[in-house]
Design a protein around this nucleic acid. Structure first.
Lengths: 333, 333
DNA sequence: CTGTTAGCGCATTCAT
DNA sequence: ATGAATGCGCTAACAG
């Protein structure tokens, strides 16, 4: 691979001159500029970005860390981030935090391989984030609060969203409302659980531990939880699933047992992933403003890069999307 | 940020010794190793990965270039690639080719920011690929054939898959079969179109240009094509959509007009995206072995990195997944 | 076993 | 307007 040195040699100028010419600096004459450009073309010269990054201590890229690149859930988020990143002339890279300690994500954080980082991955450790965040690499955290220098917080109102969902179920006349839980180390799950409990409480419904089922935020988990309810022969009047994937798992489990969701049991999810609209019955769920979240996250990164570190956490509102699985439409008839 | 030099100073050793110690080389005594590690810890030293990459001319990462990071379609592919990449101790980065000439993807290719590249993005130019591919950065191309040095080809049998789909439609008794087309510059689309025509031909059905509708591989495109058919008051007996997203768009358009898919019109898609199973009616479609594709692509990269450049293109088989939208299940009753 | 030194490829300061 | 020289942070060949 040709280096800038080769180009300079061929053009008969010094390396520095070649560099100036290549970067279109006004310091170099038109004539030599052309000479250098011609040489570069002839050698098929491509600048080595890594050398440049090292020299400038700047990568011009934003890293988006996700717990799983193949999730169904991030599509809109990515779009939002992408829009802003491109608009700022930066590059965007998506990184998986899969693999724990040795994941690409951890390496990126530790080695400052991006000028800014957006994280939506609960398996990235708080301490790592704190020690990685720096003035020239601010970090935006999307899935938990963390007060630290150069760390910005944006969150969805999980608790409020869950509250809305359960309140809706209660208004529909249900009292025995199960909670289908995500992982206990997930902050999102905790908040949703809190919202669930608060809604029960506010309606004078006593909470029972029996009502919570573990579904691990996966479709399979939801399916198994549904099966478990069937085996125990305990079908609640309503189920609030802490995310849509689990809710879809429940739908499948109940479908196999000929239990009609939206009639025999009411079901509400959380997230409003793309699938939720298409599943049968269409899933009532709590929508997160994912694209907006992506946009704001990216904007915060660039603001921080410009020295404006907003201190206060941003809380985004959710919206209850009523479809068929909760039975509300039936009730109205 | 502390550098290795600071660590060496604090530990009272030379930079090289510090480097060896940090990299756990057997050349350095246990005692000094500990001294260095202690110093590193005290300074919260983090190696600068970019400097290392420059020095070693190696990034230890594989880049996966996709035309749109937020597509519903890549989930399984990414999983396959990820598995192999992690197994080889490499990092994986997903990059969007959105943004044309200035996209991150183009930069990655030109500046050799990865040790291997996998491309599924029709908007990356052949010439760019040819000039970017090199011994220490092989490129695997997933969406078109391209014979060039250090370029490897893996493809799905688009033509065969389309043939199967249309053959199935013909076997069901349909003659007027519309083709819902993707972009004309897409190789995949071309091949699927070829399979469609061949199937017609082999059954003695004359092809008519009137039967092809443009849908641009998007749901919106499919929706509009469906609307157009309705406006023209020309509903074909069957539709073969060149991908599932367009097929889903057609379903929506027809649903609005109370035309029953699977009864009034038969519909088959291509890809078998996750949604296809859940949409109503469930979509009959041609499944691509996406995960397998990812696995093989990554394997090819690592083989190439080890000097084994397989020359022959790999062709992966497709499978017709019969669900409800084609009406086959009805017919059997 | 440890230290000295030379680059990796580039941008940039300082002379000229 | 151009060139010589320096260093970003790191690894590794070489010397001791």
């Amino acid at each position: 691979m040709a280096t800038i040195k080769d180009v300079a040699n061929l053009a008969g100028v010094a390396v520095s001159t070649a560099s100036y010419a290549l970067n279109n600096s006004p310091r170099v004459s038109q004539e030599t500029k052309e000479k250098v450009l011609a040489a570069a073309k002839q050698l098929n010269y491509q600048p080595n970005g890594i050398a440049r990054d090292l020299k400038l201590s700047k990568t011009n890229t934003i890293g988006l860390i996700l717990s799983d690149l193949s999730g169904p859930f991030y599509s809109e988020l990515i779009k939002g981030v992408q829009d802003i990143t491109i608009a700022n002339g930066y590059d965007l890279i998506a990184i998986s935090s899969l693999g724990g300690k040795n994941s690409t994500a951890v390496k990126f954080l530790k080695e400052k391989r991006a000028d800014g980082i957006i994280i939506l991955a609960h398996n990235i450790d708080n301490n790592l984030i704190i020690s990685a965040a720096r003035e020239d690499m601010p970090i935006v955290l999307l899935d938990r609060p963390l007060k630290a220098k150069y760390v910005l917080n944006i969150q969805v109102d999980n608790e409020g969203g869950a509250y809305k969902a359960v309140e809706h179920l209660i208004a529909l006349g249900h009292r025995k409302i199960a909670y289908l839980s995500g992982p206990n180390n997930s902050y999102d799950n905790l908040k949703r659980f809190a919202g669930y409990k608060k809604a029960l409480e506010d309606s004078g419904i006593a909470f029972s531990n029996q009502w919570v089922y573990q579904g691990n935020f996966t479709k399979e988990g939801g399916y198994h939880a549904g099966k478990l309810m069937l085996l125990q022969n305990y079908i609640p009047e309503a189920i609030f699933a802490a995310n849509d994937e689990m809710a879809i798992g429940v739908i499948e489990a109940f479908k196999e047992a000929d239990i009609l969701i939206g009639e025999d049991v009411a079901l509400v999810g959380f997230d409003d992933i793309q699938l939720s609209e298409y599943v049968t019955p269409a899933l009532t769920t709590v929508r997160q403003p994912m694209k907006e979240m992506g946009v704001i996250a990216a904007q915060q990164v660039f603001q921080a890069l410009n020295g404006n570190f907003s201190t206060e956490a941003i809380l985004l509102e959710t919206k209850l999307i009523i479809r068929d699985s909760c039975g509300a439409k039936k009730v109205k008839l």
